[in-house]
């Protein structure tokens, strides 16, 4: 397992030097910091708007970073031939894939943690205290990012960077509106073949909306612990399944 940690550490270093990481983090920090300018609203509304905007930024940054970093990792290593000296060593291919995934997920988690700290500071300045639920919301945002990273890595094991990024973005988009819209559209579909194919695709897509706890944070609603545990186990299971599939695909691939 030592090799997994070495690859993960190298992946974190590699990802943290990418432009997309710096640019996106800076833009999101600017938006979060700029959200304090919402002075036209009354104090209560302002705090709600602040929380809504900041959580949206954190979720979006997590998703975009996951797609940007995970879909480029393995194809770039293959294109630049970095992968050959790694695989020539006594390292199993699944170690490489798992290490890449861990590195990407850790980088995105670091970015989300940095954004959450700024968000916490802003909330403290406005409210005088920090919401205890904020840490939970940030943790589930990290879990969502891990699921998206796992899907992007799976897609990048058999496609090019552009294709993997595009497909991952579509998975993110349709995973977010899955139950709210796709289920209704499929129910009313007149074509039975399209309906069957759509239903299969519907059940394969990850349910990303369940990781979004923005509404609970903004309105101060309580979310049942049983539901949080269910979503947490679902996130871990789906991530493990996607990374396992990536390892299986990469094992059979000629590089």
């Amino acid at each position: 397992m030592k090799s997994v940690w070495v690859i993960a550490r190298l992946s974190i270093l590699e990802n943290s030097r990418k432009q997309v990481f710096h640019v996106l983090c800076l833009i999101m920090l600017a938006v979060i910091a700029g959200s304090t300018l919402l002075s036209i609203f009354t104090e209560g509304v302002k705090i709600k708007m602040l929380k809504d905007l900041c959580m949206t930024c954190i979720l979006f940054a997590g998703a975009v970073l996951s797609i940007g970093l995970a879909s480029t990792g393995i194809p770039n290593d293959i294109d630049s031939r970095v992968v050959y000296p790694i695989l020539a060593r006594p390292i199993a291919r699944w170690h490489y894939v798992f290490g890449k995934f861990l590195g990407t997920a850790a980088t995105v988690a670091l970015a989300i943690a940095a954004l959450s700290v700024v968000f916490c500071a802003l909330i403290y300045c406005h409210q005088g205290h920090i919401d205890s639920f904020l840490a939970t919301a940030a943790l589930f945002a990290m879990l969502e990012a891990a699921v998206i990273s796992a899907v992007a890595i799976t897609l990048s094991t058999f496609t090019s960077t552009a294709v993997a990024a595009l497909l991952s973005f579509m998975v993110y988009l349709f995973g977010t509106i899955k139950i709210g819209y796709l289920s209704k559209v499929l129910e009313k579909s007149p074509n039975s073949i399209a309906k069957t194919c759509g239903t299969v695709l519907y059940h394969v897509l990850p349910n990303l909306e369940c990781f979004n706890l923005k509404a609970a944070l903004v309105h101060g609603n309580s979310v049942p612990i049983s539901y949080l545990l269910l979503v947490f186990s679902y996130g871990v299971c789906y991530t493990a399944f996607a990374v396992g599939a990536a390892a299986l695909i990469f094992r059979g691939r000629e590089v």
């Binding site: 059940h203 990850p206 539901y227």
Partner: peptide
């Protein structure tokens, strides 16, 4: 949402 999570 609960049903879909359990099904998956």
């Amino acid at each position: 949402y609960h049903n879909e999570i359990r099904f998956q």
